[in-house]
């Protein structure tokens, strides 16, 4: 207890160095993950009018679901609405990059797909976009994880991860979930 002012200051400065190393280490890892591993949160600030969402080009009913474009890129367009995802089941290819695009015509929703990096809010007024590659075949739940009204608990979509031999686009390039 016979610490002098100098001793107290010395121990505090030593701890200060430890804190500095800790914070710098954490930040370093985050920067490494963001820049080298390309792990960033979904952040395309892309606006869309929720009031006319289903009349717009991209999110009209016949345009929803998974589509393979001429150059082979795969995109799924999904509407999150009270209390369902449209389409309720999304077909995605195994081990092949896909872009998921979500929009809401009514209130705030959100979703996650466990075991993947897919996790985003769906805010009316914006398109939420996530890039993902699914590496586990089979069916997995895609629940709404944000309170969207009394029916929120029932808002549960599905994702079917299909191997290449089952991921067969039709003439328009569309892929739907396999029937059980």
């Amino acid at each position: 207890m016979a610490s002098s002012h100098q001793e107290i200051l010395r121990t505090e400065l030593r701890w200060g160095a430890v804190m500095g190393v800790l914070v710098a280490g954490i930040l370093g890892l985050i920067i490494y993950a963001a820049l080298a591993l390309h792990i960033s949160p979904p952040s395309n600030v892309e606006r869309i009018d929720p009031k006319t969402l289903q009349l717009s080009d991209e999110f009209t009913e016949q345009n929803l679901g998974t589509q393979v474009s001429g150059d082979g890129r795969v995109t799924a367009r999904i509407v999150a609405t009270q209390y369902a995802f449209l389409p309720p089941c999304v077909a995605v290819p195994l081990n092949r990059p896909i872009t998921l695009r979500f929009a809401s015509p009514d209130v705030i929703h959100g979703l996650l797909i466990a075991g993947t990096n897919v996790n985003t809010m769906v805010v009316p007024g914006y398109v939420s976009q996530v890039h993902a590659t699914f590496t586990q075949p089979g069916e997995t739940p895609m629940p709404c994880h944000e309170f969207c009204g009394l029916g929120h608990s029932a808002m549960l979509g599905r994702v079917q991860v299909l191997p290449a031999d089952q991921f067969k686009p039709d003439a328009q390039g569309r892929v739907a979930c396999a029937k059980h």
């Binding site: 800790l22 960033s40 979904p42 600030v45």
Partner: peptide, 29 residues
């Protein structure tokens, strides 16, 4: 709290990550 939100870009999300990491300092002190 809005990292997974579509209305903000990566720039400000990253800036606030850095500022958040600094709030560990008074707790560690």
């Amino acid at each position: 709290h809005l990292f997974m939100d579509p209305e903000h870009g990566t720039g400000f999300k990253f800036l606030q990550t850095v500022l958040t990491s600094l709030v560990t300092i008074p707790t560690l002190m």
